Amino acid sequence: MQVENLRDILHWTEVYHRRLSDYLQECADKQSSERVKLLLEYLSEHEGHLSELFEAFEAQSELKTLNTWCYEYLDKNPIQLAGEEDIPLNEASTQEVMRTIAAQHDQVTGLYRYLLARANIPSNIELLERLLALEEHEVMRMMHGANRWEDS
């Protein structure tokens, strides 16, 4: 996907979370451990919710803000989806799943931090701050809920 402006970033993030949700569900369907399967399904639901939230942001944001150019980050720092990594989550432990998902989200928050550090228009700064906060908050909620799997 060619990413050139903030609209593309929002759309890319929406698609990213949807693909991650689909991948997590696919791995859950192949998982032999019931505990890991439930964790993967839980995380898949959260990723699907995040995809919907970013889709809503895209629909509600101002056209002028969304048309701001920002293409260099992903060219220099490509983000790879979990399915492209070495650990197949359909065979992973709960700890491996959690580490992989945390790493996935670190890549996305890194993207938003980078864009925020370079933003100089108040509407762009506001949008990027809201998106970064949303991503961080949802990841924190997801990890907190997933950590309950480890405690039980």
Score class of each variant (00 low, 15 high):
residue 84 E to R: 12
residue 76 K to P: 03
residue 35 R to H: 14
residue 28 A to F: 09
residue 92 A to W: 01
residue 103 A to Y: 07
residue 68 T to R: 14
residue 30 K to M: 06
residue 123 S to W: 02
residue 52 E to G: 14
residue 146 A to P: 05
residue 109 T to F: 13
residue 41 E to Y: 14
residue 116 L to A: 02
residue 144 H to F: 12
residue 92 A to P: 02
residue 83 G to F: 09
residue 119 A to P: 02
residue 61 S to K: 01
residue 55 E to Y: 10
residue 46 H to V: 02
residue 36 V to C: 13
residue 23 Y to D: 00
residue 85 E to T: 15
residue 70 C to N: 10
residue 51 S to P: 04
residue 25 Q to S: 12
residue 137 H to E: 10
residue 112 Y to E: 02
residue 118 R to H: 15
residue 39 L to E: 01
residue 50 L to Q: 15
residue 144 H to R: 13
residue 74 L to R: 08
residue 42 Y to L: 11
residue 147 N to T: 09
residue 120 N to A: 11
residue 42 Y to T: 05
residue 38 L to S: 08
residue 30 K to C: 11
residue 104 Q to R: 11
residue 63 L to R: 14
residue 50 L to F: 07
residue 46 H to I: 00
residue 24 L to A: 03
residue 83 G to K: 08
residue 94 T to A: 15
residue 134 L to S: 07
residue 52 E to P: 00
residue 25 Q to C: 04
residue 128 L to C: 05
residue 27 C to H: 02
residue 124 N to A: 13
residue 97 V to D: 04
residue 133 A to L: 13
residue 103 A to G: 06
residue 58 E to V: 00
residue 113 R to K: 15
residue 23 Y to P: 04
residue 35 R to N: 08
residue 143 M to A: 10
residue 111 L to P: 04
residue 23 Y to S: 06
residue 43 L to H: 02
residue 118 R to D: 01
residue 95 Q to W: 10
residue 50 L to T: 00
residue 130 R to T: 04
residue 146 A to Y: 10
residue 71 Y to C: 12
residue 121 I to F: 13
residue 101 I to Y: 12
residue 38 L to F: 12
residue 69 W to L: 11
residue 144 H to M: 12
residue 136 E to T: 03
residue 35 R to E: 04
residue 122 P to A: 06
residue 111 L to A: 03
residue 128 L to R: 00
residue 45 E to K: 12
residue 119 A to R: 02
residue 50 L to G: 04
residue 141 R to N: 14
residue 125 I to E: 01
residue 65 T to F: 03
residue 79 I to L: 15
residue 31 Q to T: 08
residue 136 E to A: 10
residue 132 L to Y: 00
residue 22 D to Y: 12
residue 135 E to A: 15
residue 136 E to C: 09
residue 64 K to W: 04
residue 65 T to C: 09
residue 139 V to Q: 14
residue 78 P to G: 11
residue 17 H to I: 03
residue 40 L to A: 01
residue 56 A to F: 04
residue 21 S to V: 07
residue 45 E to F: 09
residue 69 W to N: 07
residue 134 L to Q: 13
residue 68 T to W: 01
residue 94 T to K: 15
residue 127 L to H: 00
residue 47 E to S: 09
residue 29 D to F: 05
residue 84 E to F: 11
residue 39 L to P: 06
residue 106 D to Y: 11
residue 104 Q to P: 03
residue 134 L to Y: 03
residue 86 D to F: 07
residue 116 L to Q: 02
residue 20 L to S: 06
residue 130 R to N: 11
residue 73 Y to V: 08
residue 74 L to F: 10
residue 100 T to W: 05
residue 90 N to S: 14
residue 123 S to M: 06
residue 45 E to R: 13
residue 59 A to G: 08
residue 76 K to I: 14
residue 132 L to I: 03
residue 32 S to P: 00
residue 148 R to H: 12
residue 18 R to E: 05
residue 148 R to W: 14
residue 84 E to D: 12
residue 52 E to S: 14
residue 98 M to V: 10
residue 97 V to P: 01
residue 139 V to S: 15
residue 99 R to K: 15
residue 88 P to E: 05
residue 49 H to T: 09
residue 51 S to F: 08
residue 126 E to L: 13
residue 104 Q to A: 13
residue 111 L to V: 05
residue 56 A to D: 07
residue 62 E to M: 08
residue 59 A to D: 04
residue 42 Y to Q: 10
residue 113 R to P: 01
residue 71 Y to A: 14
residue 65 T to V: 10
residue 138 E to Y: 07
residue 95 Q to P: 01
residue 95 Q to G: 07
